[in-house]
């Protein structure tokens, strides 16, 4: 993997490598319902909720199952593996604290829930719908970790472009 900033530069000197963000960005204010998710992020686990009665995986955290409204949701730990279903690359950030480019994405996780995150540790032009990814945990500041995804090299289909090294 390339270190941050080693990708190609465009005319304005901005790289094309997707790096994690650093301290200074807005950080989450967890609720009673979401706190286990964020605690999981700090512990290196992608936690999601599971309704045993319905067999439904729930994300982002909710007080009840969306199918039966039952409140007996159990926290489970995801494999972290998923597939990008949509993505964008942001070149003009909403706040100066965000380093561009970065790549918000919707990922369909193996356990059946949907995760909104950013794809990191690859070049912008490697992004595509269907890209296999795996969770990666990044400490942004003390007690704040974000769950990003990066290309899952083990699950790249034969013939898929090799990752930058």
């Amino acid at each position: 993997m390339s270190p941050s900033g080693s990708g190609e530069k465009n005319a304005s000197g901005v790289g094309t490598w997707l790096a994690p963000q650093r301290a200074g960005i807005p950080t989450p204010s967890p609720s009673l319902v979401s706190e286990p998710f964020w605690a999981g992020a700090r512990a290196g686990e992608l936690r999601y909720q599971w309704c045993e009665a319905c067999g439904v995986a729930v994300m982002d955290p909710q007080p009840a199952c969306p199918r039966c409204l039952g409140s007996e949701l159990e926290w489970r730990v995801s494999s972290g593996r998923g597939t990008v279903s949509s993505f964008t690359v942001v070149w003009r950030a909403p706040l100066p604290a965000f380093q561009v480019p970065y790549a918000p994405a919707i990922v369909e996780m193996a356990e059946g829930f949907t995760l909104l995150t950013n794809v990191i540790n690859c070049e912008v032009d490697q992004l595509k719908v269907g890209l296999p990814v795996e969770a990666v945990f990044v400490d942004i500041e003390q007690d704040v970790s974000l769950i990003y995804v990066q290309p899952d090299e083990a699950n790249l289909a034969p013939g898929h472009d090799q990752l930058a090294t």
């Binding site: 003009r92 918000p104 909104l116 950013n118 974000l146």
Partner: peptide, 18 residues
């Protein structure tokens, strides 16, 4: 401002881009 969008750099342009 929401815990599941703002730390990820989401804003309206990104929401509609997805």
């Amino acid at each position: 401002e929401n815990e599941f969008v703002m730390p990820l750099g989401m804003f309206t342009a990104a929401e509609f881009a997805l």
